[in-house]
Amino acid sequence: MKLKQFLMIMTSCILLVPGCKKGDTMTVSESGKGGSTARMTISGNYLYLVDHSKLHTYDISDPAQTLLLNTQNVGWNIETIFPYRDKLFIGSQTGMFVFDNSNPKKPQLQGQAQHLRSCDPVVADENFAYVTLRSNNNGCGGTLNQLNIYDIQGINVLSPKQVATLMMPAPQGLGLTNNILYVCMGTNGLNVIDVTDKTKPVSKKVLSDGTDFIDVIPYDHTLIAYVKGGFILYNIANPEDPQKIGAIHN
């Protein structure tokens, strides 16, 4: 029912494009949700794109007149970008960069957390950032395989402080909802982690049936899992206990 209502609002929005497109209050529902491994994301009227070393900011308030506003150097081997409210989290092979996005036309680097060489998608909420580090595969290098949680409250964001580490095999994409963090571990499964206490993340269960999990998007009561060969949908009405309900994959 919620999805249906959502779609109806969307439809009326499209019909009323001139009226809706300038309203900033609608931006969250207007732009849907992506995964933690994306290189491109939309926040409000802006599209952010990361290549290997730079962040590009586009104004998409009038899509037909999309304009590159600016390009800024971030670092080397950038892989992912994830928006949360007025922040952008950028994952590279050597660290996490937090950009203040309160001026969405020109995000400003606020802080960064360095780590040893590895792959590292990031998700975040108001006060904490969650980063997975994965070794070796796809030429990422390094030897770490773990989840790191960083405190980004207040001025801590200037130099995010690591508050917890949880070791696990080959962690990749991740998604957060209601203090439950879902971490994809390739063929090792999907790790369901309770992060109520940020200093003590607890793995509640691992879904593992040979599926190769790459990334996830928690979406209301549905968890969308991007797996090798397609996707699987889980019901997460009880977030700790995802139930497989549908799939399209080969």
Binding site: L7, K33, G34, G35, Y226
Partner: peptide
């Protein structure tokens, strides 16, 4: 990679394009 908007799920077919799937009924 995947992206969800309303009831529609968009999944990249790597190097080839994008599948559009209606997930209003996730089952």
């Amino acid at each position: 990679k995947v992206y969800v908007w309303g009831d529609l799920l968009y999944q990249v077919e790597t190097g080839k394009g994008i599948h559009i799937t209606d997930i209003a009924d996730p089952a």
